[in-house]
Design a protein around this nucleic acid. Sequence first.
DNA 1: GTTTTTTATTTGTATATACAAATGTGTTGT
DNA 2: ACAACACATTTGTATATACAAATAAAAAAC
Lengths: 152, 152
Amino acid sequence: MKIEEVIKSTVPMDNSKKIILNVLYTQNVITDNFNEILKPYEISGEQYNVLRILRGQKGCPANMCVIQERMLAKTSNTTRLVDKLLLKDLVTRKVCPENRRKIEVTITQKGLDVLLELDPKVIAHEQHFSKNLDADEIIQLNSLLEKYRNQN
Amino acid sequence: MKIEEVIKSTVPMDNSKKIILNVLYTQNVITDNFNEILKPYEISGEQYNVLRILRGQKGCPANMCVIQERMLAKTSNTTRLVDKLLLKDLVTRKVCPENRRKIEVTITQKGLDVLLELDPKVIAHEQHFSKNLDADEIIQLNSLLEKYRNQN
DNA sequence: GTTTTTTATTTGTATATACAAATGTGTTGT
DNA sequence: ACAACACATTTGTATATACAAATAAAAAAC
């Protein structure tokens, strides 16, 4: 569906404006789709994101700063996301003995199990939309987006 | 900045996954940038969006359904967005006499004035990122995004 | 003409985003 | 040692998203 149809616009629109709307709308479509996958597991997209970061630590605990800087949304509130994961026993949290300002967050076995079960569904999700493009177009879309968002 | 640097990823990543992250991150960059513009006016991006839809009505009032279906985020809560705009006297709201289930929302002169002041800044914002691409690339990015998100 | 269904909107609850202020700990300068 | 500063995290407040349930009016069915 073209972006004009999505917002039921009748007047012609500048291509620069179209990019903005297309990026915002595509993000909505992707996350709606992903939320459907996560729904049965009762974790949100951001919570999933935190779990993935923790698994990437391969056993080492991650403190709040590390989690924060690996998240896409740099302003999201890591403390409260970790709170929610704690309640579900998907992570543990303890004060770092070397530096008591820091908090060591580790994914639990239960957390790892949830991720393992989700892995094939997440891969299918990633490829679901990409199937609409050929290999060249996929590379091109990535490079156009990276080029587009450069701040100068 | 390439997406791997953004999330400080060291392991190689599938291109399909990269698109997801690139779209999500680009959306964050765009909206952060746009929020900066809106900040002095004390309206949010979604509130701005509603005002734009109302101006597009050219004098005719819009009911909640119409606003909803023209918004990018189809699940956002129009009632509460309009509430906020009402408090700032940027819109008016009255029950439709022909069909008392419907609510007629109209932009006020104050609302139109705010939009008019914002117009040049918004156009500059739209072109800010597009300047990184040439005319062909802009067209291509739009068509790749539209092709990408097709549900089959 | 009353019941049922559909349509339009509102309200409630949980989660997340955005941002500022507060808290507590470690480090540096004197 | 103590003040000043920097760092890591938490808390508070407003806004927005996501979704289900509630309300109210209009239209359809019988």
